[in-house]
Design a protein around this nucleic acid. Structure first.
Length: 587
RNA sequence: GUUCCUGUAGUUUAACGGAUAGAGCAUCGGUCUUCGGAACCGAGAAUCUGGGUUCGAAUCCCAGCAGGAACGCCA
C-alpha cells in the first residue's frame, strides 16, 4: 500500500488499464470504467470490458476472463474476491486485510492537497445587491459557494473568495430618486432602521417608475449622475452601502462565511470605458441605437440575442462590470479559473459573458482563464411558485436564521436539560445553521429548491443533526475511554483481527470511498454527492454501533472497532467541515 | 414565437449508459432495563406519454404533454 491508493477507484482504473495493455486482445482505447458496485455484487466493478468487446466484435466473457487472471496476481488484490459475472462484468470485493491496510495507511493522512496544487481559482459567490436586505433567495449562493470554496482549498487550490456586490446598478437611480422626492435625510437614519427605510423607498420608487414615465426618466438621470461622480448622489449612495454592509456582515458572521475581497461593481466604475472602446475597436462590439452590443454570429441563439455592454444613455450595466472584473481577476489575481455561483436564470448572461471574453482574449492573444458558471435552481414557495424579491412576502435571511436557532434551542433544552445555558445556546446555533445549510446542500444544486421551514428545521432523517448526532456519540465514546487527550498517538497494530461482522465490513467498505467522493464533487462541483455519502456513512455507523459492542469482546475486537469509530469520526468531521458545517462534541 | 432547464413511490429526493431504480419523511409493524433513543430492524409504494439508438436506457436521440426560466437598455 502506498499513497497512490488514496482514491481506490482511480487506482483500480490504472491497474486494470495497465493489465489490459499486457493482453493482446486489448488496445489503448480500452477504458476499464470502474464503478462502485451494488453491494450484492461487490465493492467495485469493471464495466468497460463489455463495451470494448462489443466495439471490437469479441466475446466479452473471454476478454474478462483474461483480465481477471492477470488481476488476481496484483499485490493488494490477491486475497480479494474477484469474479466474472453476468454478460462480462468483473466484480471486486475487498478483503478485510485490504481494508485494514488502507485504513492503517491513510489513518489521519487523507491528503488531497496535490489535486489542485498551484492553481489560482477566484470564486465569486453571495454577491448580494446593496439597498436591500438579504432574503431567502440569497441563501443558496452563500451556502453552495462556501462549500465549494472549502473543497477547492482542501484539494490544494489557491482560492480567492471575492464577494462581487451589486452596488452600482439601476436600483440606485430609482432609490436616489425616491429618497430625494420623499426628502428623507439619509444621514440621520439609525443603522438598523436604515435598510428597512431604503427598502420601503425602493418599492415606492419602483411603483412610481411603473406608473409614470417621468419618474423613470428621473431615475435614469439620477443613476447617470451617480455614475458620473455627482457629489450629492455619491453621498447618498455611500450611506445606503454602509447600512447594507452592516447587515451583510451580521449574516456572514452567523453563517460562518468570510471573504478575501469585497470588490463591488462600483470598484470597476473607472475601468469600464476602456473595455467598451477596446471591444469596439477590436470589432467585437457594435453600436446600435446608441447602445453597445455584442452578437455571436455563429451561435444559434446569441446571433440574434445580443449581449448589451453599454446602455444607449452611456451608462454601464452588469455586463460591462463583469467584463472589467474578468480582466481585473486575470491581471491582478492571476486567476487560472473563475467560478460564479449564481442562480440558473443568469445562464444566458454568463454564456454570453464567457463567449465575449473568449473572443476578446483571443483577439488580444491573452491566455484564457477557465470560466465556470455554477448555477442552482430557483427557491420556490410552498405553492411551487418562485419566491418574489419585492413581493413583501419574501423571508429575510436574518429572520430565517433567528427562527432556526429558536427552534433548535427548544429541542436542545428538551433533550439535554442538564447542559449549561451557554452550552445549549451555542449548540442550538450550530445545529440550526448546520440544518439550514445541509438542507440546501443535500440536494442537487440544479434542482429547484422548495423552501420549507419544516424541512429545513426537521431534525430527523437525512439532515445535519443526524450526522452531528453520530459525531457526538463517537466523542462520548472517546470521552468514556478517557483516552481522548492522547488519542492521536494510539497506533493500531498492523496485525489486527479481521473485520468479520456484516456491519464492520459494510462500514469499512464505505469508509474507503471517501476520496473517490471528493473527486466526484470536484469534477462536477456538486456538494450533494458528499452529503449523500456522509449520510450513508453515518447510517452504516449507526447500524454498526447498534449491533456491535466496542467493549467486552476482548482486546483485538476492541482495537479494530475503535479504528472504525475513529475513522468514521475523521471522515464525518472532515466532510461536514467541507460543507461549511460546524460540528459538536456534545449536543 | 425562439432557446434553455425540470418531470422518479403520498411527499422530498438519489442513481458518473450497467445487473432486481437507492434513500429520507409520512404510513404500518417490530427491537432495546441503551458504549447517548436525536437510535436500530422490517413492510408496502415510483422512472410523464409514444417512438428510436444500444448487448444494456430514469440517463442518449426524435416527437408530444406538463411545469418553470431567459430573450436590447434589471442584476
Amino acid at each position: 500500500m502506498d499513497a497512490s491508493w488514496l482514491d481506490i477507484q482511480l487506482k483500480l482504473e490504472r491497474i486494470f488499464y495497465e493489465l489490459s495493455q499486457c493482453i493482446e486482445d486489448f488496445d489503448v482505447t480500452f477504458d476499464p470504467e470502474i464503478r462502485t458496485a451494488d453491494s450484492r455484487f461487490g465493492d467495485f466493478q469493471v464495466n468497460g470490458v463489455l463495451s470494448f468487446a462489443k466495439k471490437n466484435r469479441k466475446n466479452p466473457r473471454a476478454l474478462g476472463e483474461k483480465l481477471l487472471i492477470k488481476a488476481r496476481e496484483v499485490e493488494p488484490l490477491t486475497d480479494c474476491a474477484l469474479e466474472l459475472s453476468g454478460p462480462g462484468f468483473i466484480n471486486i470485493r475487498f478483503s478485510s486485510s485490504l481494508l485494514q491496510q488502507w485504513m492503517n495507511y491513510f489513518y489521519n493522512r487523507c491528503d488531497f492537497s496535490q489535486q489542485l496544487q498551484g492553481k489560482t481559482i477566484v470564486i465569486d459567490y453571495s454577491s448580494p445587491n446593496t439597498a436591500k436586505q438579504m432574503h431567502v433567495g440569497h441563501l443558496r449562493s452563500i451556502i453552495i459557494g462556501e462549500s465549494i470554496q472549502r473543497i477547492l482549498r482542501f484539494c490544494g487550490a489557491n482560492v480567492i473568495r471575492d464577494n462581487h456586490i451589486g452596488d452600482w446598478g439601476t436600483q440606485f437611480g430609482i432609490l436616489i430618486m425616491a429618497v430625494k422626492r420623499a426628502k428623507v435625510d439619509v444621514f440621520a437614519l439609525d443603522m438598523m432602521a436604515a435598510l428597512d427605510e431604503f427598502e420601503r423607498l425602493y418599492r415606492e420608487g419602483v411603483a412610481l417608475t411603473q406608473q409614470d414615465e417621468r419618474y423613470l426618466a428621473a431615475a435614469r438621470q439620477e443613476l447617470l449622475l451617480l455614475q458620473h461622480g455627482d457629489d450629492e448622489n455619491l453621498k447618498i449612495w455611500e450611506a445606503i452601502n454602509r447600512a447594507s454592509y452592516h447587515a451583510f456582515e451580521e449574516i456572514y458572521r452567523q453563517m460562518d462565511v468570510t471573504f478575501d475581497h469585497v470588490l463591488g461593481e462600483s470598484f470597476y466604475r473607472d475601468k469600464v470605458d476602456s473595455i467598451c472602446h477596446e471591444l469596439k475597436s477590436l470589432g467585437i462590439a457594435e453600436e446600435d441605437h446608441g447602445a453597445l452590443l455584442v452578437f455571436h454570429r455563429d451561435h444559434e441563439r446569441f446571433r440574434a440575442q445580443p449581449f448589451l455592454i453599454r446602455k444607449s444613455d452611456g451608462a454601464s450595466n452588469y455586463a460591462t462590470t463583469d467584463l472589467a472584473t474578468v480582466r481585473y481577476r486575470v491581471e491582478v489575481f492571476h486567476a487560472d479559473e473563475m467560478i460564479y455561483v449564481t442562480d440558473g436564470r443568469q445562464r444566458d448572461h454568463f454564456q454570453q459573458l464567457f463567449l465575449t471574453v473568449e473572443r476578446w482574449f483571443r483577439a488580444k492573444n491573452m491566455p484564457l482563464p477557465r470560466l465556470k458558471h455554477v448555477w442552482f435552481g430557483t427557491v420556490l414557495g410552498a405553492d411551487g411558485c418562485a419566491i418574489r424579491t419585492r413581493s413583501g412576502e419574501s423571508i429575510k435571511l436574518k429572520q430565517l436564521i433567528d427562527e432556526g436557532i429558536q427552534r433548535a434551542w427548544a429541542i436542545v433544552v428538551e433533550k439535554n436539560p442538564g447542559l449549561l445555558a451557554d452550552e445549549q445556546k451555542e449548540i442550538a446555533r450550530v445545529i440550526a445553521i448546520g440544518a439550514i445549510k445541509y438542507a440546501d446542500l443535500s440536494q442537487n444544486r440544479t434542482s429547484d429548491y422548495v423552501f420549507s421551514w419544516d424541512k429545513m428545521l426537521s431534525f430527523e432523517g437525512n439532515t445535519a443533526p443526524y450526522l452531528l448526532y453520530a459525531i457526538a456519540r463517537i466523542h462520548a465514546l472517546l470521552r468514556k475511554l478517557d483516552i481522548r487527550e492522547n488519542f492521536d498517538e494510539i497506533r493500531f497494530s498492523k496485525i489486527m483481527a479481521p473485520f468479520s461482522t456484516a456491519e464492520e465490513l459494510a462500514l469499512a467498505r464505505e469508509l474507503v470511498n471517501f476520496p473517490s467522493v471528493i473527486q466526484q464533487v470536484l469534477d462536477d462541483l456538486r456538494p450533494h454527492y458528499l452529503c449523500t455519502y456522509l449520510f450513508g456513512l453515518a447510517s452504516k455507523f449507526s447500524s454498526f454501533y447498534n449491533a456491535n459492542r466496542i467493549f467486552g469482546e476482548g482486546r483485538e475486537v476492541f482495537e479494530k472497532r475503535l479504528l472504525l469509530c475513529r475513522f468514521v469520526l475523521y471522515v464525518l468531521e472532515t466532510g461536514l467541515h467541507l460543507l461549511g458545517i460546524k460540528t459538536l462534541e456534545k449536543m
